[in-house]
């Protein structure tokens, strides 16, 4: 057994994920039974019992999802701490690529995060509507998410179980620009074009959100998250580290950088996901999602502001750009 599994944070993380999975598995079993027998028009004893049980199950799922939501930053924090154990790793970037499970697991976690927020939003509108109009939809989504969460749990265990501490990782060789000459940016973009695209897409999101243009919002947010990732790693991040060769998405989540990475990535993914969900639900369910839209836009604006401030403050302090 790898000694990584005896690390306190890893143990807490894996046990928390496992306990939540058990809770969700129970909720899944009950949900299948409820879905099978559900007939909202009926006033029978069985239907009333199902409605009360459904309310209870929704509460359990919601609580478990909120906890899973909190476990994502804890996962990042945990793998960052493991960089002390993994040879060659200076932060979570090295640890996440220590074996083949790490990166797919991180992407799966982001996908699940999007699913959790989508489920929470549908649940909110379903309970607001008095007659559970989207009960089957949200239970179907829950079933899909439960499958993803089950895969995630298996990958969590596999990831931490397959750590080979005798094999050094080489995160920094890539992050510190040893691949000079090869442009890492997509579509042949350079930094000025990337930044222009970054701010133009932000402007597009603001206009689309203010005009409640759902399709435009979907396109804007979808492109923005992609461009913003590269903008943070290859431009704004260098101002966080105050080092033009340091291009790491994870180090900014460490103490020397005041854990600002949690704010940057949290506001980016939180804002984009909420913006996408607001647009999706308006298109799909026809509900009023203006509040969620405003929160999403607010978070994305916070993300843009924080990124821009790092550049601005650096320039004001030093009189030059990196």
């Amino acid at each position: 057994m790898t000694p990584v599994l005896l690390n306190t944070q890893v143990l807490v993380y894996l046990l928390s994920e496992s306990v939540l999975w058990v809770l969700l598995a129970i909720a899944f079993g009950v949900s299948v039974h409820i879905l099978w027998r559900w007939d909202f028009g009926s006033t029978s004893e069985e239907q009333y019992a199902l409605e009360r049980r459904a309310y209870l199950v929704m509460t359990i799922i919601l609580a478990a999802f909120v906890l899973k939501f909190l476990l994502l930053p804890f996962f990042v924090f945990t793998i960052d701490r493991l960089s002390d154990l993994v040879p060659g790793a200076m932060c979570a970037a090295g640890v996440i690529s220590a074996n083949g499970y790490g990166l797919p697991l991180l992407f799966l976690k982001l996908l699940i995060l999007f699913g959790l927020l989508l489920w929470m939003a549908i649940n909110h509108y379903d309970l607001e509507a008095k007659t559970y109009p989207w009960f089957r939809l949200k239970m179907g989504l829950f079933a899909f998410l439960f499958v993803l969460v089950s895969i995630e749990l298996w990958m969590d265990w596999a990831y931490f179980f397959h750590f080979d501490l005798s094999r050094p990782v080489s995160c920094c060789s890539a992050l510190f620009g040893q691949l000079e000459g090869a442009n890492p940016l997509p579509f042949g973009l350079d930094i000025p074009k990337l930044l222009l695209l970054f701010y133009l897409l932000y402007l597009l999101i603001v206009v689309a959100a203010l005009a409640h243009q759902s399709w435009l919002e979907l396109a804007g947010y979808g492109l923005f998250v992609f461009v913003a990732y590269y903008a943070v790693v290859y431009f704004f991040g260098t101002y966080v580290y105050e080092l033009p060769t340091h291009k790491c998405p994870f180090c900014m989540m460490q103490r020397p950088y005041h854990y600002v990475g949690y704010l940057i990535w949290g506001s980016l993914f939180g804002g984009v996901f909420l913006g996408l969900i607001a647009a999706l639900l308006r298109l799909g369910l026809g509900v009023d999602t203006r509040r969620m839209e405003r929160i999403g836009l607010g978070l994305v604006s916070l993300f843009v502001l924080v990124c821009t401030l790092y550049v601005g403050v650096y320039y004001l302090r030093n009189g030059v750009l990196l």
Binding site: F40, Y48, E51, Y55, L127, K130, T131
Partner: peptide, 8 residues
């Protein structure tokens, strides 16, 4: 009212 969720 028997079918209203608690908040309603």
């Amino acid at each position: 009212i028997a079918k209203l969720p608690d908040r309603h």
